[in-house]
Design a protein around this nucleic acid. Sequence first.
DNA 1: CGCGTTTGACCAGCGC
DNA 2: GCGCTGGTCAAACGCG
Length: 429
Amino acid sequence: MEEKVAVKEFQLEVEEKSPPHTYDNKMDAPKRAELESNLLSLSLNNSEQLQEMQEQPLTQLGLLRIKLEELKQENQNLRSMLSQVSEHYTALQNRMHSVVKQLEQSSSSSHNCHDLHLKDKRQDEILEKQAFPTWQFLAINDPSPSHGKTVEGFDSPKNNIGKHECTRLALAHNVGGDINNQIRPEGAKTIEDQASEPSCRKARVSIRARSDFSLMGDGCQWRKYGQKTAKGNPCPRAYYRCSMGTACPVRKQVQRCANDETVLITTYEGKHNHPLPAAARALASTTSAALSMFLSGSTTSQQGSTLPNNCGLFSSSLSSSVPTNLASFSSSASCPTMTLDLTQSNPSNILQFQRATSLNLTQSFPLPLLGCTQQSQGFYLSSKLPTMVPLEKEPSLVDMVSAAIAKHPSFKAALATAISSFNGPSQKY
DNA sequence: CGCGTTTGACCAGCGC
DNA sequence: GCGCTGGTCAAACGCG
Protein backbone atom coordinates (compact mmCIF):
# COMPACT_ATOMS: atom_id res chain seq x y z
CA MET A 1 0.00 0.00 0.00
CA GLU A 2 2.73 2.40 0.94
CA GLU A 3 4.63 1.56 -2.17
CA LYS A 4 1.58 2.16 -4.28
CA VAL A 5 1.09 5.54 -2.73
CA ALA A 6 4.74 6.30 -3.27
CA VAL A 7 4.44 5.34 -6.91
CA LYS A 8 1.46 7.61 -7.31
CA GLU A 9 3.35 10.47 -5.78
CA PHE A 10 6.25 9.80 -8.07
CA GLN A 11 3.98 9.83 -11.07
CA LEU A 12 2.47 13.11 -9.99
CA GLU A 13 5.89 14.58 -9.46
CA VAL A 14 7.04 13.50 -12.89
CA GLU A 15 3.98 14.87 -14.55
CA GLU A 16 4.21 18.16 -12.78
CA LYS A 17 7.84 18.57 -13.70
CA SER A 18 7.37 17.53 -17.29
CA PRO A 19 7.42 20.42 -19.76
CA PRO A 20 3.86 20.88 -20.85
CA HIS A 21 3.33 20.46 -24.55
CA THR A 22 1.30 23.58 -24.94
CA TYR A 23 0.05 24.83 -28.22
CA ASP A 24 -0.68 28.47 -28.57
CA ASN A 25 -3.85 29.76 -30.01
CA LYS A 26 -2.06 30.62 -33.19
CA MET A 27 -1.93 27.01 -34.21
CA ASP A 28 -3.16 26.18 -37.66
CA ALA A 29 -6.69 25.04 -38.24
CA PRO A 30 -6.00 21.40 -39.18
CA LYS A 31 -3.96 20.87 -36.06
CA ARG A 32 -6.63 22.48 -33.95
CA ALA A 33 -9.29 20.29 -35.53
CA GLU A 34 -7.20 17.22 -34.87
CA LEU A 35 -6.82 18.10 -31.25
CA GLU A 36 -10.50 18.78 -30.93
CA SER A 37 -11.23 15.44 -32.47
CA ASN A 38 -8.91 13.72 -30.10
CA LEU A 39 -10.51 15.51 -27.24
CA LEU A 40 -13.97 14.47 -28.25
CA SER A 41 -12.85 10.93 -28.74
CA LEU A 42 -12.05 10.68 -25.08
CA SER A 43 -14.84 8.66 -23.64
CA LEU A 44 -15.56 10.85 -20.72
CA ASN A 45 -18.81 10.04 -19.12
CA ASN A 46 -18.83 13.20 -17.16
CA SER A 47 -20.35 15.74 -19.55
CA GLU A 48 -19.77 18.50 -17.08
CA GLN A 49 -16.12 17.70 -17.01
CA LEU A 50 -16.05 17.53 -20.78
CA GLN A 51 -17.67 20.93 -21.09
CA GLU A 52 -15.17 22.34 -18.68
CA MET A 53 -12.40 20.89 -20.77
CA GLN A 54 -13.71 22.40 -23.95
CA GLU A 55 -13.93 25.79 -22.35
CA GLN A 56 -10.32 25.66 -21.39
CA PRO A 57 -7.60 26.64 -23.80
CA LEU A 58 -7.18 23.70 -26.05
CA THR A 59 -3.90 22.40 -24.79
CA GLN A 60 -2.55 19.14 -23.60
CA LEU A 61 -1.87 20.90 -20.37
CA GLY A 62 -5.58 20.97 -19.74
CA LEU A 63 -5.84 17.28 -20.29
CA LEU A 64 -2.89 16.65 -18.07
CA ARG A 65 -4.40 18.78 -15.36
CA ILE A 66 -7.58 16.76 -15.43
CA LYS A 67 -5.59 13.58 -15.29
CA LEU A 68 -3.58 15.09 -12.49
CA GLU A 69 -6.71 15.81 -10.52
CA GLU A 70 -7.85 12.26 -10.99
CA LEU A 71 -4.54 10.94 -9.80
CA LYS A 72 -4.57 13.27 -6.83
CA GLN A 73 -8.00 12.04 -5.93
CA GLU A 74 -6.91 8.45 -6.18
CA ASN A 75 -3.83 9.26 -4.18
CA GLN A 76 -5.97 10.77 -1.49
CA ASN A 77 -8.16 7.72 -1.44
CA LEU A 78 -5.15 5.50 -1.11
CA ARG A 79 -3.83 7.56 1.74
CA SER A 80 -7.15 7.29 3.44
CA MET A 81 -7.16 3.54 3.00
CA LEU A 82 -3.63 3.30 4.30
CA SER A 83 -4.55 5.33 7.32
CA GLN A 84 -7.49 3.10 8.07
CA VAL A 85 -5.43 -0.04 7.70
CA SER A 86 -2.79 1.37 10.01
CA GLU A 87 -5.38 2.22 12.61
CA HIS A 88 -6.91 -1.22 12.46
CA TYR A 89 -3.53 -2.83 12.67
CA THR A 90 -2.57 -0.82 15.73
CA ALA A 91 -5.84 -1.61 17.42
CA LEU A 92 -5.44 -5.30 16.75
CA GLN A 93 -1.87 -5.22 17.96
CA ASN A 94 -2.94 -3.63 21.21
CA ARG A 95 -5.64 -6.21 21.54
CA MET A 96 -3.14 -8.98 21.06
CA HIS A 97 -0.79 -7.55 23.64
CA SER A 98 -3.53 -7.47 26.21
CA VAL A 99 -4.49 -11.03 25.40
CA VAL A 100 -0.88 -12.12 25.72
CA LYS A 101 -0.67 -10.56 29.15
CA GLN A 102 -3.83 -12.27 30.25
CA LEU A 103 -2.61 -15.59 28.96
CA GLU A 104 0.69 -15.17 30.74
CA GLN A 105 -1.18 -14.71 33.98
CA SER A 106 -3.31 -17.74 33.32
CA SER A 107 -0.21 -19.72 32.46
CA SER A 108 1.40 -18.94 35.79
CA SER A 109 -1.76 -19.82 37.61
CA SER A 110 -1.85 -23.13 35.80
CA HIS A 111 1.38 -24.10 37.50
CA ASN A 112 -0.34 -23.74 40.83
CA CYS A 113 -3.06 -25.98 39.55
CA HIS A 114 -0.48 -28.61 38.80
CA ASP A 115 0.03 -29.09 42.53
CA LEU A 116 -3.65 -29.57 42.98
CA HIS A 117 -3.52 -32.23 40.38
CA LEU A 118 -0.92 -34.16 42.28
CA LYS A 119 -2.84 -33.95 45.53
CA ASP A 120 -6.28 -34.86 44.51
CA LYS A 121 -7.02 -36.50 41.21
CA ARG A 122 -10.73 -36.23 41.68
CA GLN A 123 -10.52 -32.57 42.38
CA ASP A 124 -8.38 -32.24 39.31
CA GLU A 125 -11.04 -33.82 37.17
CA ILE A 126 -13.47 -31.24 38.39
CA LEU A 127 -10.95 -28.52 37.63
CA GLU A 128 -10.40 -29.97 34.23
CA LYS A 129 -14.06 -29.78 33.41
CA GLN A 130 -14.30 -26.29 34.75
CA ALA A 131 -11.21 -25.08 33.06
CA PHE A 132 -11.93 -26.22 29.55
CA PRO A 133 -15.56 -25.97 28.74
CA THR A 134 -14.57 -25.02 25.27
CA TRP A 135 -11.87 -27.53 24.61
CA GLN A 136 -13.00 -30.53 26.50
CA PHE A 137 -15.23 -31.76 23.73
CA LEU A 138 -12.54 -31.44 21.17
CA ALA A 139 -12.81 -35.12 20.66
CA ILE A 140 -10.89 -36.50 17.81
CA ASN A 141 -12.08 -39.35 15.76
CA ASP A 142 -8.63 -40.75 15.91
CA PRO A 143 -8.75 -43.49 18.52
CA SER A 144 -5.01 -43.71 18.76
CA PRO A 145 -3.44 -42.28 21.89
CA SER A 146 -1.86 -39.45 20.03
CA HIS A 147 -3.22 -36.68 22.18
CA GLY A 148 -0.82 -34.62 24.08
CA LYS A 149 1.72 -34.54 21.39
CA THR A 150 4.60 -32.21 21.75
CA VAL A 151 4.51 -28.98 19.88
CA GLU A 152 7.74 -29.08 18.04
CA GLY A 153 6.58 -27.46 14.93
CA PHE A 154 7.56 -23.94 15.76
CA ASP A 155 9.69 -21.66 17.74
CA SER A 156 10.01 -22.11 21.39
CA PRO A 157 11.28 -19.61 23.94
CA LYS A 158 14.59 -21.37 23.85
CA ASN A 159 15.23 -20.08 20.43
CA ASN A 160 17.18 -17.00 19.74
CA ILE A 161 14.38 -14.86 18.47
CA GLY A 162 13.08 -11.41 19.10
CA LYS A 163 11.86 -10.52 22.55
CA HIS A 164 8.37 -9.81 21.44
CA GLU A 165 8.19 -12.96 19.46
CA CYS A 166 9.73 -14.90 22.26
CA THR A 167 7.02 -13.83 24.64
CA ARG A 168 4.31 -14.78 22.25
CA LEU A 169 5.77 -18.11 21.44
CA ALA A 170 6.57 -18.82 25.02
CA LEU A 171 2.92 -18.29 25.65
CA ALA A 172 1.98 -20.77 23.00
CA HIS A 173 4.52 -23.19 24.31
CA ASN A 174 3.34 -22.88 27.86
CA VAL A 175 -0.25 -23.30 26.91
CA GLY A 176 0.33 -26.49 25.05
CA GLY A 177 2.92 -27.89 27.39
CA ASP A 178 1.16 -27.28 30.66
CA ILE A 179 -2.08 -28.63 29.47
CA ASN A 180 -0.28 -31.63 28.19
CA ASN A 181 1.26 -32.27 31.53
CA GLN A 182 -1.74 -31.64 33.61
CA ILE A 183 -4.59 -33.09 31.71
CA ARG A 184 -3.62 -36.37 30.35
CA PRO A 185 -6.14 -39.03 29.58
CA GLU A 186 -5.42 -42.23 31.38
CA GLY A 187 -3.20 -44.35 29.25
CA ALA A 188 -2.22 -41.50 27.08
CA LYS A 189 1.46 -41.02 26.53
CA THR A 190 3.44 -38.14 27.81
CA ILE A 191 4.90 -35.50 25.60
CA GLU A 192 8.29 -37.07 25.91
CA ASP A 193 6.92 -40.48 25.12
CA GLN A 194 5.31 -39.34 21.98
CA ALA A 195 8.16 -37.12 20.96
CA SER A 196 10.29 -40.18 20.86
CA GLU A 197 7.95 -41.90 18.51
CA PRO A 198 9.45 -41.63 15.05
CA SER A 199 6.16 -41.94 13.26
CA CYS A 200 4.63 -39.11 15.15
CA ARG A 201 7.54 -36.93 15.90
CA LYS A 202 6.31 -33.48 14.93
CA ALA A 203 3.26 -31.45 14.42
CA ARG A 204 2.88 -29.84 11.07
CA VAL A 205 1.20 -26.85 9.65
CA SER A 206 0.00 -27.01 6.11
CA ILE A 207 -1.09 -24.01 4.12
CA ARG A 208 -3.27 -24.29 1.08
CA ALA A 209 -3.29 -21.37 -1.28
CA ARG A 210 -4.04 -20.79 -4.90
CA SER A 211 -0.96 -19.88 -6.84
CA ASP A 212 0.47 -20.26 -10.29
CA PHE A 213 3.92 -20.09 -8.84
CA SER A 214 5.82 -23.10 -7.66
CA LEU A 215 6.64 -21.48 -4.36
CA MET A 216 4.98 -19.20 -1.89
CA GLY A 217 7.06 -16.49 -0.32
CA ASP A 218 7.17 -16.88 3.42
CA GLY A 219 10.14 -14.79 4.41
CA CYS A 220 12.56 -17.67 4.81
CA GLN A 221 15.27 -18.98 2.55
CA TRP A 222 14.93 -22.58 1.52
CA ARG A 223 17.20 -25.08 -0.08
CA LYS A 224 15.68 -27.91 -2.02
CA TYR A 225 16.99 -31.30 -1.03
CA GLY A 226 14.65 -33.69 -2.66
CA GLN A 227 11.67 -34.33 -4.82
CA LYS A 228 9.32 -37.22 -4.87
CA THR A 229 6.17 -38.18 -6.65
CA ALA A 230 3.70 -39.23 -4.05
CA LYS A 231 1.12 -41.86 -4.68
CA GLY A 232 -2.19 -40.55 -5.87
CA ASN A 233 -0.81 -37.24 -7.01
CA PRO A 234 0.84 -36.79 -10.38
CA CYS A 235 2.42 -33.58 -9.18
CA PRO A 236 5.80 -34.14 -7.53
CA ARG A 237 6.37 -33.12 -3.96
CA ALA A 238 9.40 -30.95 -3.33
CA TYR A 239 11.33 -31.04 -0.08
CA TYR A 240 13.04 -27.94 1.25
CA ARG A 241 15.29 -27.18 4.20
CA CYS A 242 15.59 -23.79 5.81
CA SER A 243 18.92 -22.32 4.76
CA MET A 244 18.78 -19.18 6.82
CA GLY A 245 20.50 -20.66 9.83
CA THR A 246 23.22 -23.22 10.26
CA ALA A 247 21.66 -26.63 10.57
CA CYS A 248 18.20 -25.22 10.95
CA PRO A 249 15.89 -28.22 11.34
CA VAL A 250 12.89 -26.62 9.72
CA ARG A 251 11.66 -28.30 6.59
CA LYS A 252 8.85 -27.75 4.27
CA GLN A 253 7.12 -29.68 1.57
CA VAL A 254 5.54 -28.09 -1.44
CA GLN A 255 3.07 -29.91 -3.59
CA ARG A 256 0.16 -29.10 -5.79
CA CYS A 257 -3.21 -30.45 -4.89
CA ALA A 258 -4.15 -33.55 -6.82
CA ASN A 259 -7.73 -32.42 -7.27
CA ASP A 260 -6.98 -28.82 -8.09
CA GLU A 261 -3.56 -28.08 -9.49
CA THR A 262 -4.03 -24.39 -8.94
CA VAL A 263 -3.85 -25.05 -5.21
CA LEU A 264 -0.38 -25.09 -3.76
CA ILE A 265 0.04 -26.98 -0.50
CA THR A 266 2.96 -25.90 1.65
CA THR A 267 3.66 -27.93 4.77
CA TYR A 268 6.03 -26.72 7.47
CA GLU A 269 7.70 -28.88 10.07
CA GLY A 270 10.24 -28.15 12.78
CA LYS A 271 11.36 -25.09 14.63
CA HIS A 272 13.82 -22.48 13.55
CA ASN A 273 17.06 -22.15 15.48
CA HIS A 274 17.78 -18.65 14.28
CA PRO A 275 16.15 -15.22 14.19
CA LEU A 276 13.46 -14.87 11.61
CA PRO A 277 12.66 -11.94 9.38
CA ALA A 278 9.42 -10.18 10.11
CA ALA A 279 7.48 -11.84 7.36
CA ALA A 280 8.60 -15.26 8.45
CA ARG A 281 7.91 -14.46 12.09
CA ALA A 282 4.39 -13.49 11.22
CA LEU A 283 3.76 -16.76 9.52
CA ALA A 284 5.53 -18.80 12.15
CA SER A 285 3.77 -17.14 15.05
CA THR A 286 0.39 -17.49 13.46
CA THR A 287 0.80 -21.12 12.71
CA SER A 288 2.42 -21.62 16.08
CA ALA A 289 -0.47 -20.07 17.93
CA ALA A 290 -3.06 -21.90 15.93
CA LEU A 291 -1.19 -25.14 16.27
CA SER A 292 -0.67 -24.79 19.98
CA MET A 293 -4.32 -23.97 20.47
CA PHE A 294 -5.24 -26.96 18.42
CA LEU A 295 -2.88 -29.28 20.19
CA SER A 296 -3.68 -28.02 23.65
CA GLY A 297 -7.33 -28.41 22.87
CA SER A 298 -6.86 -31.90 21.65
CA THR A 299 -5.19 -32.91 24.87
CA THR A 300 -8.36 -32.35 26.76
CA SER A 301 -10.34 -34.79 24.77
CA GLN A 302 -10.84 -38.24 26.00
CA GLN A 303 -9.14 -41.00 24.26
CA GLY A 304 -11.15 -42.73 21.66
CA SER A 305 -14.13 -40.51 21.90
CA THR A 306 -16.05 -39.59 18.88
CA LEU A 307 -17.86 -36.46 17.97
CA PRO A 308 -19.73 -35.27 14.98
CA ASN A 309 -17.62 -33.82 12.28
CA ASN A 310 -18.74 -30.33 12.91
CA CYS A 311 -17.87 -30.47 16.56
CA GLY A 312 -14.34 -29.40 17.04
CA LEU A 313 -11.93 -26.75 18.04
CA PHE A 314 -13.61 -23.43 18.52
CA SER A 315 -16.87 -25.08 17.83
CA SER A 316 -18.56 -23.59 20.81
CA SER A 317 -16.59 -20.45 21.09
CA LEU A 318 -16.71 -19.44 17.52
CA SER A 319 -20.01 -20.72 16.51
CA SER A 320 -21.63 -17.59 17.73
CA SER A 321 -19.45 -15.36 15.69
CA VAL A 322 -18.68 -17.52 12.77
CA PRO A 323 -21.14 -19.49 10.74
CA THR A 324 -21.38 -23.21 10.77
CA ASN A 325 -19.01 -25.81 9.40
CA LEU A 326 -16.09 -24.19 11.10
CA ALA A 327 -14.39 -27.35 12.05
CA SER A 328 -14.04 -30.76 10.64
CA PHE A 329 -12.00 -33.65 11.85
CA SER A 330 -10.72 -36.79 10.39
CA SER A 331 -7.96 -39.15 11.22
CA SER A 332 -5.95 -40.57 8.43
CA ALA A 333 -2.40 -39.48 9.09
CA SER A 334 0.17 -40.28 11.69
CA CYS A 335 1.14 -36.70 12.37
CA PRO A 336 -1.16 -34.00 13.65
CA THR A 337 -1.41 -31.56 10.84
CA MET A 338 -3.11 -28.25 10.88
CA THR A 339 -4.17 -26.88 7.54
CA LEU A 340 -4.60 -23.23 6.84
CA ASP A 341 -6.82 -23.17 3.83
CA LEU A 342 -6.62 -19.87 1.99
CA THR A 343 -8.41 -21.18 -1.03
CA GLN A 344 -11.87 -20.86 0.41
CA SER A 345 -13.86 -17.88 -0.69
CA ASN A 346 -16.87 -18.74 1.36
CA PRO A 347 -16.93 -16.59 4.48
CA SER A 348 -18.81 -19.28 6.30
CA ASN A 349 -15.77 -21.48 6.13
CA ILE A 350 -13.61 -19.35 8.28
CA LEU A 351 -12.13 -21.60 10.82
CA GLN A 352 -11.53 -25.21 10.40
CA PHE A 353 -9.08 -27.44 12.11
CA GLN A 354 -7.87 -30.81 11.13
CA ARG A 355 -6.62 -33.42 13.38
CA ALA A 356 -4.20 -35.97 12.11
CA THR A 357 -4.32 -35.18 8.41
CA SER A 358 -7.38 -33.24 8.29
CA LEU A 359 -7.44 -30.68 10.93
CA ASN A 360 -8.67 -28.30 8.38
CA LEU A 361 -8.29 -24.76 9.49
CA THR A 362 -9.90 -23.11 6.60
CA GLN A 363 -9.23 -19.76 7.41
CA SER A 364 -6.30 -18.35 8.12
CA PHE A 365 -5.42 -17.68 11.59
CA PRO A 366 -4.73 -14.05 11.13
CA LEU A 367 -1.09 -13.16 11.20
CA PRO A 368 -1.37 -9.46 11.90
CA LEU A 369 -3.77 -10.13 14.72
CA LEU A 370 -0.90 -11.66 16.56
CA GLY A 371 0.92 -8.43 16.56
CA CYS A 372 3.59 -9.12 14.05
CA THR A 373 4.97 -6.61 11.72
CA GLN A 374 4.56 -7.95 8.31
CA GLN A 375 6.82 -7.20 5.45
CA SER A 376 5.29 -8.14 2.20
CA GLN A 377 7.57 -9.76 -0.25
CA GLY A 378 5.63 -9.23 -3.41
CA PHE A 379 3.43 -6.41 -4.38
CA TYR A 380 0.75 -6.78 -6.92
CA LEU A 381 -0.21 -3.32 -7.86
CA SER A 382 -3.38 -2.20 -9.44
CA SER A 383 -3.68 -2.65 -13.14
CA LYS A 384 -4.75 0.95 -13.24
CA LEU A 385 -1.11 1.82 -12.99
CA PRO A 386 0.42 1.01 -16.32
CA THR A 387 3.83 1.93 -15.04
CA MET A 388 3.80 -0.73 -12.41
CA VAL A 389 4.31 -4.27 -13.57
CA PRO A 390 3.46 -7.06 -11.16
CA LEU A 391 6.59 -8.53 -9.75
CA GLU A 392 7.64 -11.78 -11.28
CA LYS A 393 8.07 -13.32 -7.92
CA GLU A 394 6.32 -15.90 -5.89
CA PRO A 395 3.38 -14.52 -4.00
CA SER A 396 3.73 -13.96 -0.31
CA LEU A 397 1.87 -16.21 2.06
CA VAL A 398 1.71 -13.39 4.52
CA ASP A 399 0.07 -11.23 1.92
CA MET A 400 -2.41 -13.90 1.09
CA VAL A 401 -3.39 -14.41 4.68
CA SER A 402 -3.70 -10.70 5.14
CA ALA A 403 -5.86 -10.52 2.07
CA ALA A 404 -8.01 -13.27 3.46
CA ILE A 405 -8.49 -11.25 6.60
CA ALA A 406 -9.46 -8.21 4.66
CA LYS A 407 -11.83 -10.30 2.61
CA HIS A 408 -13.58 -11.72 5.65
CA PRO A 409 -14.24 -9.09 8.29
CA SER A 410 -15.55 -11.76 10.59
CA PHE A 411 -12.03 -13.08 10.98
CA LYS A 412 -11.27 -10.49 13.54
CA ALA A 413 -14.32 -11.24 15.56
CA ALA A 414 -13.77 -14.93 15.19
CA LEU A 415 -10.24 -14.76 16.47
CA ALA A 416 -11.17 -12.45 19.29
CA THR A 417 -13.85 -14.87 20.35
CA ALA A 418 -11.49 -17.76 20.02
CA ILE A 419 -8.84 -16.10 22.11
CA SER A 420 -11.38 -15.03 24.66
CA SER A 421 -12.70 -18.53 24.99
CA PHE A 422 -9.16 -19.77 25.18
CA ASN A 423 -8.17 -17.21 27.70
CA GLY A 424 -11.18 -17.27 29.89
CA PRO A 425 -11.11 -20.89 30.98
CA SER A 426 -7.40 -20.81 31.51
CA GLN A 427 -7.78 -18.07 33.98
CA LYS A 428 -9.85 -20.32 36.12
CA TYR A 429 -6.95 -22.67 36.29
C1' DC B 1 34.73 -22.54 -7.53
C1' DG B 2 30.78 -22.24 -4.66
C1' DC B 3 26.08 -22.84 -4.25
C1' DG B 4 21.70 -24.66 -5.37
C1' DT B 5 19.02 -28.14 -7.96
C1' DT B 6 18.19 -32.65 -9.82
C1' DT B 7 17.61 -37.40 -9.37
C1' DG B 8 18.45 -42.13 -8.37
C1' DA B 9 19.55 -44.79 -4.32
C1' DC B 10 18.79 -45.83 0.26
C1' DC B 11 16.34 -46.29 4.66
C1' DA B 12 12.58 -46.77 7.88
C1' DG B 13 7.75 -47.29 8.94
C1' DC B 14 3.63 -49.56 7.97
C1' DG B 15 0.21 -52.79 6.23
C1' DC B 16 -0.75 -57.26 4.55
C1' DG C 1 8.91 -61.43 5.69
C1' DC C 2 7.82 -58.74 1.86
C1' DG C 3 6.39 -54.91 -0.73
C1' DC C 4 4.86 -50.25 -0.80
C1' DT C 5 5.47 -45.59 0.35
C1' DG C 6 7.30 -41.36 2.27
C1' DG C 7 11.36 -39.10 3.49
C1' DT C 8 16.29 -38.31 3.14
C1' DC C 9 20.95 -38.65 1.29
C1' DA C 10 24.48 -37.67 -1.83
C1' DA C 11 26.67 -37.62 -6.26
C1' DA C 12 26.10 -35.42 -10.56
C1' DC C 13 24.98 -31.45 -12.83
C1' DG C 14 24.03 -26.54 -13.96
C1' DC C 15 24.65 -21.77 -13.28
C1' DG C 16 26.68 -17.35 -12.08
